[in-house]
Amino acid sequence: MSHPNLSTAENSAIRLNEITKQYRGNTAVDQLSLTVRRGTTLGLLGPNGAGKSTTLKMVMGMLRPTDGDVVVLGMDVFRDGPQLKQRIGYVPEAHHIYRWMTVAEVTRFAEAMYESWNDGICAELMEMFQLPAKRRVRQLSRGMLAKLSLLVALSHEPELLVLDEPLSGLDPIAREEFLDGVLTGVCREENTVVFSSHQLDEVNRLADEVAIINAGQLLVHCPLEDLLHSTKRVRAVLQEGRLPEKIPSEMIWNQVNRRDWQLTLYPFEESTVDEIRDGNPVAEVEVLDLGLDDIFKDFIKGQSKPC
């Protein structure tokens, strides 16, 4: 389910065209198509094992899809990998920076890899993150490693920043520091940022657009505001001894508990409430707003337990 305004390939930073990734018969990503426009911040949401990291690794050219095409910044990610990586910053979920290097050696090594490297940004981030230049990577905490990884990803001023669960494993203080101090700033600039997460508060704070994936399939991709405004919970009270008869096509999840019938609709339209009233034995109908948390859960539950 992709928002009509987001489906255009023009001016896209990332274009995934029906990509599938299978590992020995298991499908991690299943015919996923997604277009991310330049300058947007996309939050890629999904439960554990949904295929977020696999998708981002394919965007980075670190995994070849079993089927489908990946085009990033107008270039083929596999054919033009080295040129493309000059323009992308990536922060993985697990940091595997050379453990024997010191922080200063890591920055020098990374600097040698990129054609352009902004010493000013690097120094500024070193200071902001309070990274000890002489300390070895193996002596850094998880939070420090994440900061070093972000420093490497940002110092060459990438056009596209790909963050794979950037805050996972960080304590609440480090998370706040990261969100307020760095990511909020990065996401406000002209950069395109794609980050995966299952932390909904992060997505709420940073993202312009949201894509929810589950079991390797894209369930929805649209601007965050649209998703919040166009997804509603309808709560209906059924007549005694009756069951729903006509379920609207916009339904993404529903549950019947005695006379209480709850259903989540996307995209929601007022006329759908009339359809529910007219087509079902309901006594009362109430429309409720939902937070991103509930919307996410309903999309996931709706896919895993078809009604």
Binding site: P82, H96, A110
Partner: peptide, 17 residues
């Protein structure tokens, strides 16, 4: 073995280099 190849994989050097 120590998975540092993953770090190098997302930096710009080509396989040939």
């Amino acid at each position: 073995g120590d998975r540092s190849a993953e770090f190098l994989a997302y930096l710009p050097p080509s396989r040939g280099q």
